[in-house]
Design a protein around this nucleic acid. Sequence first.
DNA 1: TAAGCGTGGGT
DNA 2: TACCCAAGCTT
Length: 291
Amino acid sequence: MFDNPYSTAVLAWYETNARELPWRRDDATPWSILVSEIMLQQTPVVRVLPAWEAWMRRWPSPAHLAEEPSGEAVRMWNRLGYPRRALNLHAAACAIVERHGGEVPSSHADLLALPGVGAYTAAAVASFAFGQRHAVLDTNVRRVLARAHTGAEYPPKTQTKAEVALAESLVPPDAAVAARWAVAVMELGALVCTARSPACADCPIAAQCAWRLAGKPAYEGPPRRGQTYAGTDRQVRGRLLAVLRESPAPVPKSALDVVWQEPVQRERALDALVADGLVDPLDDGTYALPN
DNA sequence: TAAGCGTGGGT
DNA sequence: TACCCAAGCTT
């Protein structure tokens, strides 16, 4: 039987506290919402906002993007990070044109089949763009449910079946309400139930929060992260791709060699970029963004 | 399943 | 200063 002890309070809170984001406006299209979701994967809202505006101005529909070289998407991506997302978005646009007549599909299964669209993004687009009933489980929701329902400060490192089952059990029966719940609980996690210093005083469900009621016990478990960036292949890849983004024409190898001293790591990073389709090695020995 | 994949701002 | 974290996906 459906029982969500938080939904009424969270929905009411959202009514007066939701941010006005452009992809939430009434004139947002499924395409503009899909673009926002891809951009927001591991990237903060404040950095996505200007990139999304520029992207939507240039490519207001999948067909507009699909007729351009994929390298233009990578260039336009600029410094948002994880540039394979730009490649995925271009490939998704092509697939939407070829398989769906240029219209972003509405079914979860069709969305999931698009490049760069996983379980979260498919559910988010189906919910936000098409008003469907899905469990939308992102990092914000996982944290809210861990605290409010499970009593832990942080969710497990990797998503568990128990989390999915819990999230599904909380989805309101009515589709329109479910879609509202999805965006509302995400927003609560983004604005109030934050990772670092949650604003429990402003939380509409503080009275029912298992973690707070337990006295906010500290997180117990393995170290949550540790990924350093300096000196990694990721940093080298970033520098190599930055050279290509900023050059309107193909560049000689020498222009890439200057970004990293150590040749073994540099070549490994470049080879990986080529393998990923982010860099195109031309016949004359120069390098460019892909076509 | 866990590791790899960018970048920049906050603490 | 060094982390930590941000609407994940892929292999």
